[in-house]
């Protein structure tokens, strides 16, 4: 268990985190685009991409919530060792990791305050696969429209309706990820 916890982090953090952050930035700047990341080998069930997002962004100053199957000792140990991030309840999370089902109900997550809308959660949603097929996405970062296989549309439409409040989402599958900030308008299906 401990041996697991000690491995699977970045071996050259400054360079690996820089490259990975650029992919995450591109993903959230251009919602729906699918990017590839590498460098993390987190314990299952976490995907490489979810591990990378946590390594790049989470640290002792951010609360991490593990939802469903993600909440197991190996993952907790890995997060404690590599991030030092406190594990928190969904309502307090800066980052929450799990499948879409496990993260439900997503209305639990912080959506920021009217004067500080940035104080909101980022959901890392583990998916089986990511393809540019599904409901149409429009809004900032998207020239005309793009498509992504979202797990559902109603929750994201409701979240968009809260703007400037709302959570932001990174979908992860294997070593791929895609972003869906609160600004994105999701087609009703």
């Amino acid at each position: 268990m401990i041996a697991d916890a000690l491995t699977g982090g970045f071996t050259d953090a400054p360079l690996q985190s820089a490259r990975a952050f650029r992919e995450i930035l591109e993903a959230l700047a251009r919602p729906g685009t699918i990017r590839q990341v590498s460098g993390a080998r987190p314990p299952p069930p976490l995907s490489t991409a979810a591990g990378v997002v946590l390594l790049v962004l989470a640290d002792p100053t951010t609360g991490v919530h593990l939802a469903g199957a993600a909440d197991r000792p190996a993952v907790r140990d890995w997060i404690a060792f590599h991030l030092g991030a406190p594990l928190v309840r969904a309502e307090q999370a800066d980052f929450a990791v799990g499948t879409w089902t496990a993260l439900h109900p997503v209305t639990r997550f912080r959506i920021g305050r009217p004067d500080y809308p940035d104080r909101s959660a980022t959901l890392i949603v583990e998916c089986d696969r990511l393809v540019n097929h599904g409901p149409a996405l429009t809004g900032p970062g998207i020239e005309t429209a793009t498509w992504l296989n979202l797990p559902e549309t109603a929750a994201f439409r409701a979240n968009h309706g809260l703007f400037p409040l709302g959570f932001d989402t990174v979908f992860t599958a294997g070593d791929r990820l895609s972003g869906l900030p609160r600004t994105t308008r999701v087609e009703k299906i």
Partner: peptide, 9 residues
């Protein structure tokens, strides 16, 4: 983290 929130708002 700040940059990503800035892009989202």
């Amino acid at each position: 983290r700040a940059i990503l929130k800035a892009l989202a708002i």
